[in-house]
Simulated scan of single mutants.
Amino acid sequence: MSKKVSIKDIAKLTNTSITTVSFVLNGKGHISKEISKKILDTAKEIGYEPNRMAIGLRTGVSKVIGLVVENIGGPFFGEMSKVIEAEAEKSGYRIIYCSTDNQVNKGKEAIRMLTQQLVDGYIITPFKGLEEEVLKLIDQGKPVVLVDGYFPGLNISHVLVDNYNSVLKAVNCFIEGGYRNIGFVTSDLDLIQLDERLSGYKSALISNGIKENPALIFKLPYLLDKSEGLKQIKTFINTHPEMDAILFTTNYLGVMGIICVKELGLHIPQDLAFISFDDTEIFSVYPPGITTIQQPVYQIAKYGIDILLSQMKGSTPENAATKLQIASNLIERGSTVAKNES
């Protein structure tokens, strides 16, 4: 194993002192341009990488941001993370990623680990049970921005899609197409964004004079394995033959819904009109094309990292929280063609 390059090696190769090398690498002191260039070129040539933790301990600035999300491997969070990383790099920051799977213990452990790494700021996907940890970070003076959710009643900057109006518009799309027995499939997670999607569904029914049928609302346990989840969704669909349309509140539920409809031998939209939250490639290619609620992933990520960077630079007044809910885009495809046209 090759020895890690140190500032002592750079000092020896450039015939300068360790102090001079340290000053140049940390942008301090008044070192001539010629010597500075020689040191920086040598550091790059021999592959010198600074110890971020040591720098953080010495300066209080690690140039690292902690990103804590539900699942970094999922399409929504994966796309969002790419934007955040690219924007952070423009300002000289690197990202440490953590996934929580919406489990409180994993979330708490992720925040503890990032705290030990002395990260400069946090972007966190919140869920019930993490309030205390997030408030501790803020009390310690750490910049925090929440994405894809928020803590009701807490004055913390957050950016997410307008969940309520997104689903309201989607359900209205069903109703305008002649569908009135509309099923709603969601997760049993206690998340504000899912609560707001359910509220949007109920409000759309009420505003169109349709009586809510609680039996058409199905909450699938989040930690259920896929095969059991598919079985339960198929049972839900079979149990309600009167249901002529169905809305899935997350990407993974929508994909499971497509599988279930296919295995049950049903046709979209003749037997069951279909809408899913989040837009991925499978929804555009699966016949006849699945109508989706497209989240503004780039905008959510861009606003999130911009707000955090502003906080870290001290550009945001203390106790001032930025709270954004961004409109989604309903992409209408063949799965919601009006009844008299299907």
Rank of each mutant, 00 (worst) to 15 (best):
F184P: 00
N251Q: 08
Y298P: 10
S284Y: 09
T292G: 10
S203T: 14
F184N: 03
G229M: 04
S187G: 02
Y298L: 10
E281K: 11
Q311L: 13
M243I: 09
G289F: 09
K226W: 05
G289M: 08
R197V: 08
D279S: 11
D188P: 05
T249F: 05
I246K: 00
G289H: 06
I290A: 04
Q193Y: 11
I182V: 12
Q294M: 12
M256H: 11
I182W: 00
E281N: 13
I307D: 07
L264I: 06
L272N: 01
I307K: 03
E281D: 15
G265I: 03
I206H: 14
V297G: 08
L247E: 00
I258P: 01
E281M: 12
K262P: 03
I182S: 00
K219W: 04
M256W: 11
T291K: 03
D190M: 08
G229I: 04
I268W: 02
Y303T: 01
S310F: 03
G183R: 01
I192P: 02
K211F: 09
P296L: 07
P241Q: 08
N208R: 12
Y303L: 07
I206D: 15
I268Q: 04
I293F: 11
D188H: 05
V185M: 02
P221V: 04
D271L: 01
M256V: 02
I233L: 07
Q299L: 12
Y222I: 06
L189V: 02
S227Q: 14
K219P: 01
F218A: 03
M243A: 03
L223D: 14
G265W: 04
D225W: 03
L309V: 07
E263S: 11
S310P: 07
A204V: 01
F248S: 03
E242I: 03
Y222F: 13
S187A: 08
P287I: 10
A215F: 02
T249R: 04
S203H: 13
Q270T: 08
L266Y: 07
S284C: 11
P296H: 06
F277I: 11
L223R: 12
H267M: 15
K231S: 15
I305P: 05
K302T: 10
D225A: 09
S276C: 15
K202R: 15
L216R: 02
K302A: 13
F184S: 01
F283R: 08
I305A: 09
F274P: 02
N251S: 09
E228N: 15
P288F: 12
T250S: 14
S227K: 15
K262C: 06
G304E: 03
C260V: 10
L223M: 13
L308S: 07
Q193N: 15
K211N: 13
S227H: 10
L230P: 03
S199R: 15
V261T: 14
Q299E: 14
G257D: 07
I307R: 01
K234N: 10
V261N: 06
K219V: 01
T292Y: 12
G289E: 10
D188Q: 05
L216W: 01
Y286K: 06
I237P: 00
A273D: 00
V185N: 00
K219F: 07
E242M: 05
Q193A: 14
D278V: 05
Y286C: 14
P241L: 03
A204N: 08
A273H: 00
Y303R: 10
Y286E: 12
I210E: 05
Y303W: 09
E263L: 08
L205K: 04
G183N: 02
L205H: 06
T250F: 09
D195F: 11
Y222Q: 08
Y201D: 02
D306H: 13
G200H: 06
D271K: 02
